[in-house]
Amino acid sequence: MDEYDNNTPSHGKDNFPRKILSQLRGSNGPVHAVTYSASPGTYILTGSADRSIRLYNPIPSSTTTNASSTQASSFITKPSQSPLTASPPAGRLIQTYTSHGYEVLSLTVSSSNATFASSGGDRAVFLWDVSTAQTIRRFSNAGHTTGRINNVIFAGVDDSLLISGGHDTTVRIWDVRSQSSAKPVQVLGEAKDGVTSLVFDSQGTGAEVLAGSVDGRVRTYDVRMGRLVTDVFPGAVTSLCLTRDGKTVLVGSLDSKIRLMDRSNGQCLRTYGGVEKGSGDVGAAAGGWTNKEIRVQSVLGGGERWVVAGDENGAENSNGEGRVWAWDLLTGRLVAKLGVPWGPGGGKVVVGRDGKEKERKNVVSCVAWKDSGFGNQFCVGGTSGVVTVYGEA
């Protein structure tokens, strides 16, 4: 399959979004977190290594669209053209949020869109007011004791809880409504290594927390019944994504595999990624999907029709572009492998410890899918510091 599959003229009727709609610029470092606002999913929040959070409208203004339409069109339709000479139009920056003292690693938006929460290297969870750009609360006292907080999610009725997981191997549950943030409601400390990913299941018992960890475990806590179920994986767990009915969960791990797991019996229903060229698999692609060293996110998209993931390797060309992969959820067939451009200016050359120049890869580590509103759309971010938004042609 062509490296720039977004440029292939015919894709049948899968409707997978391959067209680059815009790029969200302004970050002064790698982007570690991206998420859409709640329904109708009009806006995108990004969290960066520059300690800032930015709110964007991904649809370019009319003047930007008109000025960039020729460049954007040529970028999409000519796979031989270098992205260094054709930049997609820029999305609109709405607001910048600055209270973090360290890199931002995770973002979660409330269902009302009035608040969002963030976490990172601060060892604290920040609760924000969207309109005023001010922090409402900081959950830090008696909180995570060492290292960074890798993930934070809203949970409970009316988003009454925040759940955080971090490098200190604990999962902590915080009551948003409480006037005191001195202590978490509950601390779950069974992990033997850092907690990388969290999801909350409100379908079954209505109170199950799933936590993925570097120790290669996914732990399911039924906090009402006081029950713990542990599933073991061959590599550190880097990503979790729960289906809407809560019956299956998508698990990414550092063995370059993404697995769809049946939560009732722990059975692996389908495996995605890790395919080498010439293997005979219908999803075979040069180099295969790679996740061996860093946290790379994978999500469900298109009404749970596709599995979409970033890639810690750059694209297979000379300019160090990034790439994003998509598979059919039911068959495991590779649907798309898209090149992710650097953005204006192209990739930066860095100097290694040996004093020699080395080309930096555009590692795509975070992905978010627009789950509401009109049309299929998703966005990706990573080391380039630019978030690229894809939609239907």
Rank of each mutant, 00 (worst) to 15 (best):
F200W: 07
T243Y: 00
S202F: 00
A211V: 02
A155V: 03
L210S: 01
S180H: 07
D168Y: 00
I173M: 05
V218N: 07
F126W: 13
V130L: 15
M225N: 10
V218W: 08
I173E: 01
R137I: 11
A236E: 11
T135L: 12
I153R: 01
G143C: 05
T220L: 08
E208D: 05
I173Q: 04
V157M: 12
C241R: 08
D215P: 07
V187P: 02
A124T: 08
A117K: 03
V232M: 02
A133S: 15
V125H: 03
T220D: 01
D222H: 02
V232F: 01
A191G: 04
T170Q: 07
T135E: 14
A117I: 10
A211Q: 03
S239K: 06
K247E: 14
A182Y: 00
G121S: 11
F126R: 00
D231N: 12
V125I: 14
A211K: 01
P234C: 05
I136M: 14
V218S: 07
F126Y: 13
D159K: 01
T170H: 05
G216Y: 04
I149S: 00
L240Q: 12
R138T: 15
L188Y: 02
E208N: 10
T230M: 12
S131A: 15
T238L: 09
S160F: 09
C241Y: 10
I149V: 14
H167E: 11
D222W: 02
L162D: 01
A142G: 13
R138F: 12
L242K: 06
N151R: 15
I163A: 01
V185M: 04
K247I: 09
D193H: 04
S118N: 11
A124K: 05
I149L: 06
T238M: 12
F200S: 08
A117H: 04
R217C: 10
G165Q: 02
E208Y: 00
I153L: 06
L210Y: 05
A142T: 15
K247V: 11
T230N: 09
V176K: 04
A124W: 02
G246E: 09
G189M: 06
T135M: 13
G194S: 11
V187T: 12
A182W: 00
A236V: 11
D215L: 09
T170K: 05
G156C: 03
L198M: 02
D159N: 12
T132W: 07
V125K: 04
G216D: 05
Y221K: 06
Q179K: 09
G121Q: 08
M225S: 12
D245W: 15
K192E: 11
S181T: 15
T230L: 07
S181I: 07
S119F: 08
D222A: 11
